[in-house]
Structure formats: C-alpha cells, structure tokens
Amino acid sequence: MSEVLLERPSPGVALIRLNRPEARNALSQSVREQLAAHFTVLSNAADVRCIVLTGGEEVFAAGADIRDMAERGAVEMLLRNTHRLWAAIAQCPKPVVAAVNGYALGGGCELAMHADIIVAGEGASFGQPEVRVGIMPGAGGTQRLTRAVGKFQAMHMLLTGLPVKAADALRMGLASEVVADDEVQARALALAELIASMPPLAVMQIKEVLLAGQDASLEAAMMLERKSFQLLFDSADQKEGMQAFLEKRKPVYVGA
C-alpha cells in the first residue's frame, strides 16, 4: 500500500494522509517525493479548493527517517534536492489544513508548519529535536517556527529539543485550534469544506498576499493587498457574492 494516500472526502476537498504507521509516519525520501507529487497535481486541479493534510488518528509525523540519514554525507544530502520537494507544498496556491494528532516532531513539525491552518488534538505535541542527534532543522524549522512564535520561544524549542504540548502550541501561535483528539479529523474537514465553499479566487489571493507580505515592508505589503483587492472586482464571484448578499440568498461561486 502507498505510503501517502489521497482521498476525496467531499466536493472541493482533497485529503492527503501519511501512511507509515510502522515508522510513526517518518518522512523518508520516498514519502517526501510522494507528498510533492500529490501537491503538484492538486495545485493544478480546478476541482480542488482546499487540502487537508494528516498522519491519522495516532501520530502526525515523528520526524525524518534517521536510519536513512545516519551514514549520509553532505554531498549525498545536497544531491537529494529535498528543498524542491518541500517547495511543492510551500508553493501550493490552495489553502492547506493540517490535522495533527500525536507527535509532530522534526520534519513532522516542519510539515505541519507548511500548512495554513493547524488543528491539533489535545494530546498532540510539537517539537524540533534535531539538536539532540547532532544536527539542526533543514526544512524551515528555524525560519517558519521563528515567524510563528517569535525568537525566544523558537530558541527555547530549537536549543533544548523539548516538545511543547498542544495547549502551549496554541498559546504560542503554533496552532490555530485545539480540539479533543477524536475530533481533529472531523474539525479539519469541516474547516476545509467551509473554505471550499468560499470564492476560490479570493481565497487564493488572500493566501498569496498574506505569505508574500510577511517578509515585505508594511508599505509594500499594503500595496500588494490593495492591488489584489482591486483585482477581485473584475471577478464573476465578486458580483455573485455581493448580489447574493443583497438578495439574501446563498451565493454560488465558480472561481471565475
């Protein structure tokens, strides 16, 4: 059976599920390649409006596959070009909701941080323990984490390798919601279905502008926001949305 499963649970929603329970969903090279392939296809799928990413009900992903890395050299790691595989997720124009149960450690935490919304179970834990095996994060763990929780919380996690529980992750800004463990998948799917019901062009513009504006000056970011705001007034969905509001009916968005 495939190590990464693709499901279509409802219209407009795709679900990507890691499927290596025997290895606690460790992110082998093969798993990263399969993730990249799925995200590349879904990024261009007109009938997909939101993606849910999960590891299942027991564990999200407990880091990289250490057995596969222990004896590798620098050139071997360089030639893997794993940054290109991660880029397929980072550059996905569709909103991504991570459903996190159990461990999200190392590469698993980095994978969750590639999402746009993180729904965590009460028993979930997030961490970057790479320092404990003589290395450091290599897929955004020092950069995305700092942008999410700030320098001092990020340094605490990165330099000690200690994980944080879901409630602390929520307080720090590393999770969007915390729900009961048995409600994580359902809540993530409900959010994805809600997002999928929104006008696709507006959703994609919001994601693009928010991410692009994070590292720009406020003035430049405001310009990006203003231009995208104006652009949406040329969309059929804007006309439909405002007309439906005035007519007190439910809008039907087509992504045009």
Rank of each mutant, 00 (worst) to 15 (best):
R72D: 01
G73N: 11
V75I: 09
E76G: 00
E76A: 02
M77C: 00
M77N: 02
L79V: 01
R80L: 05
R80C: 02
R80Y: 02
N81C: 03
T82Y: 04
H83S: 09
H83G: 04
H83N: 06
H83T: 04
R84G: 00
L85S: 08
L85I: 00
W86D: 14
W86L: 04
W86N: 12
W86K: 03
A87I: 01
A88H: 03
I89L: 15
I89Q: 05
A90T: 01
A90S: 05
Q91S: 05
C92F: 00
P93E: 02
P93N: 03
K94D: 01
K94F: 02
P95A: 06
P95W: 05
V96H: 01
V96N: 04
V97L: 12
V97Q: 10
A98D: 09
A98F: 10
V100C: 15
V100Y: 14
N101D: 12
N101W: 10
G102V: 07
G102C: 07
Y103D: 15
A104H: 07
L105N: 07
G107K: 04
G107I: 04
E110D: 10
A112H: 09
A112F: 11
M113D: 01
H114T: 06
H114S: 03
H114I: 00
H114R: 04
I117N: 00
I117C: 08
I117T: 13
I118C: 09
G121D: 13
G121E: 13
E122N: 06
E122M: 09
E122T: 09
G123I: 04
G123N: 14
G123Y: 04
A124G: 03
S125D: 04
S125M: 13
G127E: 08
Q128C: 08
Q128Y: 15
Q128W: 13
Q128N: 08
Q128G: 01
R132M: 14
R132P: 01
V133K: 02
V133Y: 07
I135V: 14
M136E: 11
M136T: 12
P137D: 09
G138A: 10
A139K: 02
A139M: 12
G140N: 11
G140V: 12
G141W: 10
T142L: 13
T142N: 14
T142Q: 12
Q143A: 14
Q143D: 15
Q143V: 15
Q143F: 12
Q143K: 14
R144I: 12
T146A: 15
V149R: 11
V149E: 10
V149P: 09
G150A: 08
G150W: 07
K151W: 14
F152T: 13
F152H: 12
F152A: 10
Q153C: 02
M155Y: 05
M155R: 10
H156P: 00
H156F: 08
H156G: 09
H156Q: 14
M157S: 12
L158D: 11
